[in-house]
Every structure is written in C-alpha cells, then in structure tokens.
C-alpha cells in the first residue's frame, strides 16, 4: 500500500463507508464472539456462497446491546435497515433466505428497525 498523504485523507468519499446498498454486518467484539458470532459469521459466508446470494458480509465492533448478542445488521435495498438480535446458525440461514433473497423480515428477531 502506498503512503497516504493529507490530500488522500481529505479526498476520501465519506459515502464509501455506507458500503453500497446491500450488506450484512456481524458484531464481532468479545461480547459477540462469546455469544457465538464467530459461527454466525462463518455460516453467513458459507451459506451465501452455497446459495449464490451476492451480498457484502462484514465484521464490525460492539453496538452496545450486549444482552441480545450476537447482533446482525442487515440492509437490503427496498427494505428498512434491521438489527437482528440473538441470531444463531439457523437464524443466519433464514436471514439469507427470507430477508436477503425473498425480501421479507424475520419478525421475532428484530431489535431495532430504521
């Protein structure tokens, strides 16, 4: 990677952090990992590949709602941004199938919606 200059820092498009229109973020701090976020993340990556679902899956830090970890935030075009709590392996697969592919929400796991 080349050295960054001041211009580079100022030039960066702040919209870039919004990662485009469709993405999944998994909270992967110690609190999330302890609750099983590792497995959820691995499942998402693996199953998305298996099912040919193209979506950007990324790690992120702790969102603060530690009592309902693991947290998975999903943004799909045309749907509100949803934060799912207490996600496990099975729920992760359902998120891919129901939310990402069929554009329907998983009601029982919604903890925040915007």
């Amino acid at each position: 990677m080349k050295k960054i200059t001041k211009e580079d820092i100022e030039k960066i498009d702040p919209l870039k952090k919004d990662l485009g229109k469709s993405w999944i973020k998994v909270g992967m701090s110690t609190c999330g990992v302890a609750a099983g976020a590792d497995e959820v993340y691995a499942t998402l990556i693996e199953e998305a590949k298996k099912r040919n679902i193209e979506i950007d899956i990324r790690k992120c830090g702790c969102q603060g709602a530690c009592s309902v970890e693991p947290l998975v935030e999903v943004n799909v075009e045309g749907l509100p941004k949803v934060l799912y709590g207490r996600v496990n392996k099975d729920v992760a697969i359902t998120i891919l199938e129901r939310h990402v592919r069929n554009k329907k929400l998983l009601h029982d796991y919604i903890f925040e919606i915007n």
Binding site: K17, K25, G27, S29, R58, K59, C60, G61, C62, Q63, G64, L71, E73
Partner: peptide, 10 residues
Amino acid sequence: LKNCGYIDPE
C-alpha cells in the same frame, strides 16, 4: 462509540 459497530475495525 460512534464507529463501534458501524465500521469494520480491521
């Protein structure tokens, strides 16, 4: 905490 949980820490 504005970035915690929003950006990829890595």
